[in-house]
């Protein structure tokens, strides 16, 4: 028996919004430590890794490890049927071929349940090595989303250059060129507005705007985003989900032909 309950359906809607543009389907691996999903996007360029810890759920029970392959388009249809303030419970029997989403209104007067067929997905899991990154940038997630959106107008690729002074995002194309520089903030009223840089070595890397823009769909999950970079290895774009876990996106830098 698997059962996981979240007080608010909003968080699950936001998680789905953060992955459904990149993935058509995904396997949710459930164990007593929580729920994990790892999948490459359809073109195998980026990797999405979602971790939801069991202690972040209002209720969590997982008697036996189960892997639930879900069509994310179908899951999105079902989640549309939940109000933001509904409690959501995900349930499945051991070895079941369906999963049930149950939504309860705050006053418990409306209860709906939606059963969805599970899929058998033959997905390979990738082992992600622990890496010490040359640069780790933390910045407001909305600011990062804005920069990715703005610079994507100029080129399909964006250069990210990080030094201890700050981080610079650049793009150039037929129209001209664009540069956005962010300095490390000295003092801020709110922690969410801070830009901070931990640098061992400066790095300059080129990334596809299209994927960075897809990652920023996770912005509603967290006020801050963390970019971890080293030469010649994939960038990690991480959004923490308060008290519940995180979503990480991996994207390899572009290389000269």
């Amino acid at each position: 028996m698997f059962e996981a309950r979240l007080i608010s359906a909003t968080i699950l809607k936001k998680i789905l919004d953060a992955i459904k543009d990149l993935l058509n389907e995904g396997t949710f691996d459930c164990s007593d430590s929580g729920i994990q999903l790892q999948a490459m996007d359809n073109s195998h360029v980026s990797l999405v890794s979602l971790t939801l810890r069991s202690d972040g759920f209002d209720k969590f029970r997982c008697d036996r490890n189960i892997s639930m392959g879900m069509n994310l388009g179908s899951m999105a249809k079902i989640l549309k049927c939940a109000n933001n303030d509904d409690t959501v419970t995900i349930k499945a029997q051991d070895n079941a071929d369906t999963v049930t989403f149950m939504f309860e209104s705050p006053n418990h007067e409306k209860v709906s349940d939606y059963e969805m067929k599970l899929m058998n997905l033959d997905q390979e899991h990738l082992g992600i090595p622990e890496t010490d990154y040359s640069c780790v940038v933390r910045m407001p997630s909305m600011e990062f989303a804005r920069i990715c959106r703005d610079l994507a107008q100029f080129s399909e690729s964006m250069l990210i250059c990080c030094t201890k002074e700050g981080v610079k995002f650049s793009a150039s194309g037929d129209v001209g060129s664009a540069n956005v520089k962010l300095a490390q903030t000295s003092s801020v009223d709110k922690e969410e507005e801070a830009v901070s840089i931990e640098m061992q070595e400066p790095v300059t890397l080129t990334f596809a705007c299209r994927y960075l823009n897809a990652f920023t769909k996770a912005s509603p999950l967290s006020g801050q985003v963390q970019l971890s970079m080293s030469a010649d290895v994939p960038l990690v774009v991480e959004y923490r989900i308060q008290d519940l876990g995180h979503i990480r996106y991996y994207l390899a830098p572009k290389i000269e032909d």
């Binding site: 980026s46 082992g127 991996y250 572009k254 290389i255 000269e256 032909d257």
Partner: peptide, 13 residues
């Protein structure tokens, strides 16, 4: 510029 696949960087488990 070329875009390498992410699979090239991580080992298959």
């Amino acid at each position: 510029m070329a875009q390498p696949s992410i699979a090239a960087f991580f080992n298959t488990r």
